[in-house]
């Protein structure tokens, strides 16, 4: 384990990923497997889990699909108990499960209690349940990597975007609380902040999301672009990263969702500072 590329290698590592059957989670699961990890894929629906599992097994990887609703703490506890029993340890937890589409898009006075709770539970409480369930196991082993998944809306606001922005902002703060609390035991926590990728979920909610022309690089993310960064954060190559945010968003957070190719309104010769 001396060379740089060895440090990225996940052989002998066990990774649990929630929401691993679809969207970015599916790509993360495939990338973790290709980097050598045993992958436990959790998700609500059986069919997408089976599809990802079939690909991984076909490629020669090892995986275990486990149907799980992360908003139910007893199911989360069962998922992590099962993972430890089957693979003897869990090195990496990727808290990816969440709701993208259907989280609102209406004025605050029309949002019901259950609509609010559904998104907060799926996006924030589920990550808390998973981190809670695995924390002592990782502390006992003196190592572990928790990777949470937030969004640009976790850092910025958006019109009629209440539950999604609040839950994703909560995920960032959950990451910082974990990082500053579990770091002393050798357990690191970091947070991915994906921008807009072309996935099933984002296509459904397109009416609420900026179009590709408003992403600075001029295109939406391609789902498999999330793979390498997850492998890096899951690997020994990121051992000194803790409590950090990783925006993979085509430059969106560097500015705002504004039209690209901004030109100055005045010619340079008219610029007051230069006269």
């Amino acid at each position: 384990m001396n060379t740089l590329f060895d440090k990225f290698n996940l052989s002998e590592n066990t990774a649990v990923i929630t929401g691993g059957g679809t969207g970015l989670g599916r790509e993360m699961a495939l990338a973790l497997s290709r980097a050598g990890a045993y992958v436990i894929i959790a998700g609500r629906r059986q069919n997408p889990l089976k599809e990802v599992a079939d690909i991984i097994i076909h490629e020669g990887g090892k995986c275990l699909p486990v149907q799980t609703d992360v908003t139910d703490s007893s199911e989360v506890n069962r998922l992590l108990d099962l993972s430890i029993k089957k693979f003897r340890k869990v090195d990496v937890l990727v808290n990816n499960a969440g709701i993208v589409a259907g989280q609102g898009g209406k004025p605050i006075w029309e949002i019901s209690d259950s609509e609010w709770r559904n998104v907060i539970d799926a996006n924030l409480t589920g990550s808390f349940y998973c981190a809670r369930a695995i924390s002592q196991h990782m502390i006992e082993r003196g190592s572990g990597k928790i990777i949470n998944v937030s969004s640009g809306f976790g850092l910025r606001g958006g019109r009629d975007n209440y539950m999604y922005a609040s839950s994703k902002g909560g995920v960032i703060q959950l990451t910082r609380a974990l990082a500053t609390s579990l770091g002393r035991y050798g357990v690191t926590s970091n947070c991915l902040v994906p921008g807009i990728f072309r996935t099933e979920g984002t296509i459904k909610s397109q009416e609420q999301l900026p179009r590709a022309e408003f992403v600075p690089v001029g295109r939406l993310g391609i789902p498999n672009e999330i793979g390498p960064i997850v492998v890096f954060l899951a690997s020994q190559a990121s051992n000194y990263m803790n409590g950090s945010l990783f925006s993979v968003d085509g430059g969106a957070l560097a500015g705002g969702y504004a039209p690209t190719d901004h030109k100055p309104f005045k010619e340079l010769s008219e610029n007051i500072l230069l006269t």
């Binding site: 990451t175 672009e225 960064i229 690997s235 925006s247 993979v248 968003d249 430059g251 957070l253």
Partner: peptide
């Protein structure tokens, strides 16, 4: 090394304008 090589690679094409902290959790505190 890890972060530097990732940001130098072709696979960081959807990442720009960002600051990445490498500090053991200092800034998170």
């Amino acid at each position: 090394a890890g972060l530097l090589v990732y940001l130098s690679s072709d696979n960081s094409d959807f990442v720009t304008g960002q600051v990445f902290h490498l500090d053991g959790g200092l800034i998170a505190h």
